[in-house]
Computed example of a mutant assay.
Amino acid sequence: MTRHIHINRVTSARIGAAILFAVAALFYGVRPAHAAERPFIIAPPAMDEPASPSHQETAVFAGGCFWGVQGVFQHVKGVSQALSGYAGGKADTAHYDAVSVGDTGHAEAVQVTYDPSQITYGQLLQIYFSVAHDPTQKNRQGPDTGAQYRSTIFATNSQQHKIAQAYIAQLGKSGVYSKPIVTTIEDQKNFYPAEAYHQDYLVQHPDSLYIVFNDMPKIANLAKEFGERYRDKPVLVNR
């Protein structure tokens, strides 16, 4: 049976960009985007949430196409769900065709549900800044450009805001990044789940050229740099 995959002009553009990468790599020795090639080796945050009994909390991160960000957090121990969606704009524009234009205020984002007794918010931030995306790319990530691909932390409470703000300052002083960190923090913005065909996209399409070039290296980097937090079997939305 052939699986139906929704393809619109933006998804087609992503696939087209991946094909160009493949051709360039074959004929000119061009390498994939830096963010997908190697992680940033960074220290954990000096400020973090306190240890707590087992329960569920949520965090929302944006850092380029949500396919790869979702894929990374689906492989993190202590995460019970990573859901692709939109954050930063209004409900009536929280759909792919509108968000892809780039003027809705939304960013492609991932809502991470996690158990802070297994992994803290600060540890999720470390993974986000190290392997999930490049926080020095403004309104873009790899081949994708536009405000919908911005590097943004959507803090769900004041504690998350303080931890994220302190960590950005810490990383900025570390000298790890060759360019300034452009990650912003947006507070108390609603999160809207993306369409079903975007969920588990990396898992469902591991051989897609876009995924191969831009996202699979992130999973490899997660396993290499955060082995104690990596799980081989991802937690899926469509279980």
Rank of each mutant, 00 (worst) to 15 (best):
R38W: 08
H95I: 00
L26H: 10
S84F: 05
V176S: 12
Q118N: 02
H205P: 02
V79I: 15
S208H: 02
G78Q: 12
V69R: 06
H161Q: 05
A98Y: 04
V112A: 03
K233Y: 03
T104I: 01
Y192A: 14
I153W: 02
P32S: 12
S208G: 03
A13S: 10
F191D: 11
H4E: 08
P32R: 08
R150Q: 04
S84R: 08
G172T: 14
G85V: 08
L20I: 15
F66Y: 14
G88T: 08
F129D: 01
G105Q: 13
P32V: 05
S100N: 14
Q159N: 05
Q199G: 14
Q70W: 15
K218W: 12
S84E: 04
F129V: 07
A33D: 15
I181Q: 08
V101Q: 13
S151V: 00
R14G: 04
A91H: 14
I219G: 05
L222R: 06
L209N: 05
M216V: 14
V203K: 03
F66I: 11
G88L: 03
A46M: 15
S130I: 07
Q141R: 02
F27T: 09
D207V: 11
V131W: 12
P39A: 13
A36H: 09
P45H: 06
A33W: 07
F73Q: 11
T93G: 05
Q188R: 11
Q204V: 03
A132D: 02
Q160W: 02
T183N: 03
A62S: 06
Q148S: 05
G29A: 00
Q165W: 09
Q170C: 09
F73G: 08
Y197Q: 08
A17G: 03
A35D: 15
P143V: 13
A87K: 01
N221M: 07
G78K: 07
P234A: 09
R140K: 13
Y167V: 07
V110I: 07
I41K: 13
L83Q: 14
L20M: 13
P39T: 14
Q123N: 10
S151P: 02
Q188E: 12
I211D: 05
